[in-house]
Amino acid sequence: MSSTLSAKITIEKANQEAIRTLFESADADYRATHSELKNTPISAKEIDDSRGVLWVARVDGEVVGHVALGKLREDVYEIKRLLVVDEYRRIGIARKLLAVLEEFAKSAGAKSLVLETGTMQPAAISLYRRLNFEEVDAFFPYEKHPKSVFFEKHLE
């Protein structure tokens, strides 16, 4: 278990097979649990096309989590596809991924981070609140939906 607590987070392109598989799996999970939503998740192709950055967490060389960041507007960046595989949850990997993402966003000139998650993700909602994200109204390109929750964090 000690190796999981010191998971090394690396920045890698989404076109590597292990990362693409995990990312596409997250998209499939999203579509399965949010089929009625019109909100479209970011695709691995969008990351490949340099419209975003994908970070992965590895433990002993195995990809166990990821998060993507895309530029929504000039100084607003959107967090997409935060995922940690079940057996590595609740040990700080998601928090580490978000910390790396936040530092990158600040250095890129972001003034705020936004995200959309589902009401069926109580652990994610709790994490975002603990990390000082505030619930906000739906933001473009999303539409308000009873199963969506929107968050924003102002960066300093």
Rank of each mutant, 00 (worst) to 15 (best):
G52F: 07
D29F: 11
V53Q: 11
E87D: 13
I11D: 00
N39C: 06
A28V: 12
A138R: 02
K144V: 08
K147V: 13
E62I: 14
A110P: 10
T117Y: 05
D29I: 15
S107V: 08
I91A: 09
I93M: 02
M120S: 12
E116C: 06
E36C: 11
K111C: 12
D27W: 03
L127V: 08
K38D: 11
S43T: 15
E36V: 14
V149D: 07
L97R: 03
I42G: 04
L72C: 09
L54A: 13
R58V: 10
W55K: 05
K8M: 10
A94K: 01
G61H: 01
Q16L: 12
S43G: 14
R130K: 14
S148L: 10
E103L: 06
F104S: 06
V76E: 04
V85S: 08
A138G: 04
Q16I: 15
Y88D: 06
F133E: 03
V63P: 05
K153M: 10
E62Y: 03
S43V: 13
E24N: 15
L127G: 05
D48F: 08
Y77V: 11
G61Q: 03
E46Q: 15
I42W: 01
T117F: 12
E24C: 15
V64M: 04
K8Y: 04
P141N: 09
H66S: 12
T10Q: 05
D75T: 14
H34I: 11
D75I: 07
G61D: 05
F140E: 05
E78L: 05
R73A: 13
M120H: 09
A32E: 13
E152Y: 01
K153D: 09
I9Q: 00
L69W: 00
E103I: 06
G65R: 03
E17D: 13
I47V: 12
T33A: 10
E12I: 14
R73S: 14
R73G: 09
P146W: 00
F151Q: 06
H145N: 09
E103M: 01
V53K: 07
E103A: 07
I125K: 10
V59G: 05
S126A: 13
R51C: 14
L82M: 15
E46L: 15
A14D: 05
A138E: 02
H154F: 15
D60A: 15
I42P: 00
A7L: 06
A26I: 13
P41G: 07
K153H: 07
R58F: 06
G92A: 14
Y142I: 01
R81F: 07
T10A: 08
L101M: 03
E143M: 02
I9D: 01
E116N: 04
F23Y: 14
H154Y: 15
F150A: 13
R58E: 11
A124L: 04
L83V: 11
V136W: 02
G70V: 15
R90I: 00
A94N: 03
L127E: 04
L115P: 01
Q16R: 13
L69V: 14
I19Y: 02
D75P: 03
I79G: 03
T4A: 10
S6G: 10
L69K: 02
V100H: 00
E62V: 13
R73F: 12
E78K: 10
D75W: 03
G65S: 06
K144F: 02
E152F: 01
K38N: 09
R58G: 06
R130G: 04
D49C: 12
V59W: 03
L113Q: 06
L22Q: 08
